[in-house]
Nucleic acid binder design. Structure first.
Length: 435
RNA sequence: GUCCCCAUCGUCUAGCCCGGUCUAGGACAAGAGCUUUUCAAGCUCUCGACACCGGUUCAAAUCCGGUUGGGGACACCA
């Protein structure tokens, strides 16, 4: 039975790199019918915080990586101590007074030897133990170090495959030494390539808005983010990019993971997210959006037309890179007063179009069947009568109605805006004295 | 400094393991055009890579060695 683990330290939010590690562990467990274990590495009392534990748990849940078991290292201190004592008794470790003199650390004595690691992704990696310093197992404050707690836990929790970032490669020989000293079976290792920033260098907690919760808040869908992350070092082949997680589980093999570090490309994520938004159920998208719209003051609790909103979501769905952009792009449908983009006004409303707007307004008003087709028909009639090109009028009307130069088709905009609001907004640009 | 990892279009990748089917395929981005209803939507097209040097071989993106470049690790952090 395969048992893998994701072991984050709650010293920060779950970020892109961590999410990717969690993804491959979870995916491998699903693909092999194994267990996905979560271990909170909170041995650093100073930097570990409960709010980060909550945040990590919430993000993992949102991404869909549900764990089968969970452990907290802070609750397992006695276990680590017991094993450290054993190594001490066997003469494999020694104690040393801390520089501050406050306590005694337990240190493992490295025995010179060659260490071989068979990495599932990279093949054999060899190390010479003479380049490794003696390893602190228990700090003078009585808490276990990362490498020691990690080995004891992985062994005791029967972890069969340690799948983690590349940055842990140099920890691996140290850990193998400890497995051997403790008489534990050495698990299989798979070191994932790192995710790099566009500017070069690794993507980490310190390098910007990489927290999963930030992506969620910006309107990225979990499915799209997972799909994108998956593609960062694995490929389903056959030129496929959009892949359902269920299908990925069927095709996934840890051995097929790439060795090369990948650069995180937000533009491609945006494209991917749009692919998912396009094909998502509109009702579901609206459900996600309602809290956002409330927060932005675009709708009020218990005072909105869900069917109307649903139509708007459908209207914008094909062109949203981030779901939450809807709030900004569709605001003119929901606000009583619109803000006209200054550049748009200069470009399309600097000429006086009172007569044209007035005529169009009247035609709209006279429409018996008010629908997208009839609106277009009456617009086409008007430009024919005025003997002008449609673009001469179409862009100014869009700006007058929406305040923006881009958006869905004008006739759909008018239809969903309704007769009254269309007339009202056009009237704002009709100079009375000219009539 | 020491140790380790990596190397295909700007980016993500397919191909590499099992050399010939690769004048290297796809996607994102970019550029051009179409859509005369905009683009942040859609469609079409274009640009664009086997890091370098040797070796093995009839034949190398694919195998081997080196160079260069990039990355990571060297804590009583995790």
């Amino acid at each position: 039975m395969v048992r893998v683990r994701f072991a984050p330290s709650p010293t920060g939010k779950l970020h892109i790199g961590g999410a990717r590690t969690a993804l491959f562990n979870w995916l491998y467990a699903q693909a092999t019918g194994g267990k996905f274990i979560l271990r909170i590495e909170d041995t650093d009392k100073l930097r570990s915080r409960q709010e980060f534990v909550d945040e990590i748990l919430e993000s993992l849940c949102w991404l869909g990586f549900l764990h089968d078991e969970i452990y907290y290292q802070s609750q397992r201190t006695d276990i680590y101590l017991e094993y450290a004592q054993r190594l001490l008794r066997q003469g494999k470790a020694y104690t040393e007074k801390s520089p501050a003199g406050s306590g005694e650390a337990i240190i493992y004595k490295v025995v010179p030897q060659k260490i071989k690691i068979d990495d599932l992704i990279r093949g054999t990696i060899e190390f010479d133990a003479t380049t490794i310093k003696d390893q602190v197992l228990v700090k003078s404050d009585g808490t276990a170090t990362y490498n020691f707690a990690c080995v004891v836990d992985d062994a005791l929790l029967s972890i069969t495959h340690v799948i983690r970032g590349d940055d842990h490669i140099s920890n691996t020989p140290k850990q193998v030494l400890l497995y051997q000293a403790l008489g534990f079976k050495v698990p299989a290792f798979a070191h994932l390539p790192l995710i790099l920033r566009k500017e070069g260098g690794r993507l980490s907690k310190r390098t910007g808005a990489t927290a999963i919760s930030d992506y969620r808040r910006a309107g990225y869908l979990a499915s799209a983010l997972v799909n994108y992350l998956l593609l960062l070092s694995w490929s389903p082949g056959a030129d496929r990019e959009i892949i359902d997680i269920k299908e990925a589980i069927k095709l996934f093999d840890i051995r097929d993971v790439n060795k090369t570090a990948a650069t995180f490309d937000l533009k491609k994520l945006d494209w991917m997210n749009n692919q998912y938004i396009k094909t998502s159920d509109s009702h579901w998208l609206l459900e996600q959006l309602i809290p956002v719209l409330k927060e932005k003051g675009l709708i009020r609790e218990g005072d909105f037309d869900a069917n109307y909103l649903l139509s708007l979501v459908k209207l914008f769905q094909p062109r949203l890179a981030r779901l939450n952009d809807f709030a900004e792009w569709a605001d003119f449908f929901l606000l009583p007063e619109i803000t006209i983009d200054e550049a748009a006004q200069d470009k399309f409303l600097k000429n006086d179009l009172s007569r044209e707007f007035q005529l169009f307004s009247e035609k709209i008003d006279g429409l018996k069947d008010f629908n997208v087709e009839s609106i277009e028909r009456c617009f086409r009639e008007l430009i024919k009568e005025l003997n002008i090109e449609s673009r001469v009028l179409i862009h100014p009307i869009r700006v007058a109605l929406t305040g923006k130069t881009v958006g869905p088709g004008l006739f759909e905009i008018i239809y969903y805006l309704g007769k009254e609001r269309t007339k009202e907004r056009l009237a704002n640009f009709i100079r009375q004295e000219r009539r």
